[in-house]
Design a protein around this nucleic acid. Structure first.
Lengths: 193, 193
DNA sequence: TGTATAATATACTGATCGGTATTAAAAGAG
DNA sequence: CTCTTTTAATACCGATCAGTATATTATACA
């Protein structure tokens, strides 16, 4: 009714998302959060609940952005093969551009929290499943258009691409020789016959 | 000279390894460690140094065991293809058998620490490189024996198998439908022509 | 057996953790 | 302007963190 919030909730959640993404759940303190978000503790608690609720909101925001970003990158391409190649190459380029690499917030959470908290096990599982469906639909279109062989199993290939995407993203955190990654991308894309 | 240590250092380090493996670095407290290892704080510090030194020793022990375990599983097989298939299938079986899955200590560390600590970036990178060399040697033997096509590039395939291994291990933490994993394993192994 | 030495156990340190009670400030309603 | 309500800011809470000082116990050697 009366005094209205002085900070932009969506903006603050975005700051929290980036911080949890970079540092993980445990390693991010409330002091880190409030200073990055530019708000005080009581404001954080009244707006987002406790640390875990804020983390969950941040992750949900991330997977929403991540899904639509990937969907966007794969569509509007005349060639499905080229779309996937560009997608993987840009991903690798992006990760090697900055040090440390940004990685994927959802993958980080799969490792840190999914084994110890069913809520995050489900949330991360469903995101990976969703990505595999996006991949699958893209591959199915490629078959329909005649670009890809009809003997290809869109679901199986899509799932394998998701597994490979996870593997690449995690491995790049150790910053291996670029050829390690490039070779793998080439081999993986060879599954799209 | 005089009073000798009452606890088995190697045994205590093994306990620490399992705990860090399960919970990660940040989420494992000194109290967790001393109670699991069955020793007091001063004993821990005098024997292993601080928390980070203990963690590093635990991880080094892990990668040593992990390397030799994988090497063992891949050799003594008449067929290279069968060796890899058995290796991946047993890995999946093992991970689905218990909940939560054990995962890989080195992969966990790649995600949690490698991006923020060069020491662990290097340690984890070298382990993955080492695994790729084991894979590469196995594949090269398969080519030499005539089981695998000579057109195969052992290094590239080996690196791709490492990427896939990482992806599978991480994804299984979210406990997806078994078919997601099985389909991926089948596709990945199809690279071994 | 007495002494030196090192490992043990207890108890404590300052710092930081997540979370909150309390106080001050802001703004619409009357 | 005053009152009411909700926000924001300060300061604080007990708990736990990693790490250590102190004291006790055990043992090899003189």
């Amino acid at each position: 009714m009366v005094r209205q919030r002085e900070f932009d909730e969506e903006r603050a959640l975005d700051d929290a998302m980036r911080l949890f993404w970079e540092k993980g759940y445990k390693a991010t303190s409330l002091s880190d959060l409030t200073s990055k978000m530019g708000i005080q503790r009581p404001s954080l608690y009244s707006a987002f609940g406790d640390k875990e609720e804020l983390f969950e909101a941040a992750l949900r925001k991330y997977v929403k952005l991540h899904s639509s970003s990937i969907r966007k990158k794969l569509q509007n391409n005349q060639s499905v093969k080229k779309a996937f190649r560009t997608f993987f190459e840009e991903l690798v380029e992006e990760e090697y551009k900055e040090s440390p690499s940004k990685g994927c917030f959802c993958i980080n959470t799969m490792v840190e929290l999914a084994p110890h908290d069913e809520k995050f096990e489900i949330l991360t599982r469903e995101h990976q499943l969703y990505l595999s469906v996006i991949f699958q639909e893209t591959i199915a279109e490629g078959i329909k258009s005649g670009e890809l062989e009809s003997s290809l199993n869109p679901k199986k290939v899509a799932q394998t691409l998701v597994v490979s995407l996870i593997g690449l993203t995690v491995l790049m955190k150790s910053r291996p020789e670029r050829s390690f990654i490039d070779n793998s991308v080439t081999m993986i894309l060879s599954l799209l016959k």
